[in-house]
Amino acid sequence: MMHNTAMPAQAEEHPRAVELKDMAVGESGSVVRICAVGELGRRIRDMGIIPGSRLCVTGRAPLNDPLTIRLRGYTLSLRGSEAAYILVEPD
């Protein structure tokens, strides 16, 4: 609802791709697409999340949101509403 500048997700190309927010703790995969543009898109990329990046969901906050992921040797936390813009193909 906040970042309404998203581009349409390309689910057809990656039939197995899911939104990062729907991945279970412990699941890992490769990023296939970032659907956010503007500030959110840039922040996500600045943190090293680009198509092809490997990541692993490592935890969720006590109230289930935000979630933490591990990539490039470090840990990142982001809200579910933001993780919804990241499409990942789980292993």
């Binding site: 959110l40 840990t75 990142l76 936390s77």
Partner: peptide, 12 residues
């Protein structure tokens, strides 16, 4: 207005 995204590193 919309807030800033919460995209935050958890340092070791």
């Amino acid at each position: 207005g919309a807030g800033t995204p919460f995209v935050m590193e958890l340092p070791p």
